[in-house]
Design a protein around this nucleic acid. Sequence first.
DNA 1: CTTATTTAAGACAAATTTATCCTAAATAAA
DNA 2: TTTATTTAGGATAAATTTGTCTTAAATAAG
Lengths: 144, 144
Amino acid sequence: MFSKACEYGIKATIFIVLKSHEGKRVNPKEIAKEIDSPEAFTAKILQALVRHEVIVSVKGTYGGFEIDKDKISTIKLADAVRAIDGDSIFNGCGLGLKSCDEDHPCPVHDKFKDIRDALKNMLEQTSFEELAFNIKSGASFLKL
Amino acid sequence: MFSKACEYGIKATIFIVLKSHEGKRVNPKEIAKEIDSPEAFTAKILQALVRHEVIVSVKGTYGGFEIDKDKISTIKLADAVRAIDGDSIFNGCGLGLKSCDEDHPCPVHDKFKDIRDALKNMLEQTSFEELAFNIKSGASFLKL
DNA sequence: CTTATTTAAGACAAATTTATCCTAAATAAA
DNA sequence: TTTATTTAGGATAAATTTGTCTTAAATAAG
């Protein structure tokens, strides 16, 4: 479904939301430990999230990654997915045809449309704040 | 969503259904041309479909790939997907956790459940015969 | 039975994704 | 201003997926 990079990116963002809520910044080492991911690779993914303005980075002593407190509630799953995997999952043809649309549909076009729309809606409506809250309350987990 | 191999496999199976309906066998060269895929790679994927008994192969002169006529109507998208990509798309965790279930869910477990179930239902209910019919009538296309 | 034809299988190669490492650049703190 | 610390970025490597090629095995037809 998602690339490994995207899976790490989503988990990392949830953890950063969690920490930002406490007014704390986190570094790649801490993040990688918390989400059980390779540290250097995770750092790369964090760079992409910063470039796409999903998260913010601060260099120097006491630096790290964070999210503006008043922006936290606005970030959706779709923002991280787009930043890392692009929007192929939102637009791409289920069978990889270059020019698949209503006028020239692939064999599964209509069947996939409903699924893809449901996925898109879910990703665009689910906030990281909501996901972070469930981690905090012990209702869900970032690893194992 | 699906691997390239799986995309080719689905398209190939549709074409084989189409030809089997006419009582004709097809070879990898013909298939690759029809679905615009690399021939040798497609041949590998056909082997997997044969091993998983989605299609049948006949060696020797006038040989090729086919599907038993009375089996055609029973084959579903899910059969080809399972043969090539396994069932990770049906069972796997959206964030790649090893042990993700109701008791120990990943942060997106519930959100993904609905999507995954919808996808699973669609794949298990959609027959290749139906897809082949739409190709035949010009309502959908295998390439471009 | 022999032969031509076709799929099966394994080794190999290219491309992409995942992952690591080292150095540069930025910057906060002292 | 200097220094310690931290992210950014590029080069490299490993693993996986995608793709190719050659030979073996099977088998239908003659």
